[in-house]
Simulated assay, not measured.
Amino acid sequence: MSAQRVVGQTATAGFQIGVRRTLPLFQEEAWALLLSPQGRKLWLGEIANVEFSQGSTFETEEGHSGEFRAVKPLEQLRLTWQPAGWLDASTLQIRLLPTAHPGKTTISFHQEKLDNAERREVMKTHWEDVITGLQAIANNGSTR
């Protein structure tokens, strides 16, 4: 008999969380927003310069660090992401998903390798806040 897992717990990678929302942006606009100083501050942290290419590393002013593992323009960013104070890095994947409606794109944040259920809940709130911030920028038309 195996131990019962709780919501968000995986068999091998700790805990995970996924948050997604459809925004009123074309895919190119959503990508530009994510990589813009205003957008990346929401999800990555405060950083003057960052190279969005596979293998490049970063460290933000807040002490978040990581490495980009996959960069597929207009589609996906996959990176290790370790906030200051965390013992281990998590894996963060940001995907831009086309919708059936022109001018709309779903932005998806998926994070895995989280230590426990409490951290999962904290990160769920964090990514919901990030998407809310991105949506506010999109609704203000700053990307068009």
Rank of each mutant, 00 (worst) to 15 (best):
L42E: 11
A3H: 15
W81A: 06
T60F: 11
R69W: 06
G39D: 05
S2P: 15
L35Q: 14
E46D: 04
L44N: 07
H101F: 11
L74H: 04
L25W: 00
L42P: 04
L25V: 03
E29A: 09
E46T: 13
L35C: 05
A117L: 14
A100T: 05
L33Q: 09
G8C: 09
Q135E: 08
F68E: 06
F26D: 07
V50K: 07
Q111L: 09
K41N: 06
S36M: 04
N140Q: 15
T60R: 09
T80S: 00
R5E: 14
E112I: 00
H64D: 07
T57V: 14
S90M: 09
A3M: 15
T91G: 03
T99R: 06
G55Y: 12
S56V: 10
R120I: 03
T132G: 11
A70V: 15
R40M: 08
Q16Y: 11
P37V: 00
I17H: 00
V6S: 14
A48D: 08
S142F: 14
Q38Y: 07
R40P: 10
S65K: 03
A84R: 02
E46H: 09
V130N: 10
T57G: 03
T132Y: 05
N116I: 05
P102A: 10
G14M: 08
F68I: 01
P73S: 02
A84K: 01
T105L: 09
E128T: 14
E59V: 03
T91N: 10
R119V: 09
G18T: 15
K124A: 12
A30W: 01
S2Y: 09
S90T: 10
Q54N: 06
L92V: 10
E75P: 01
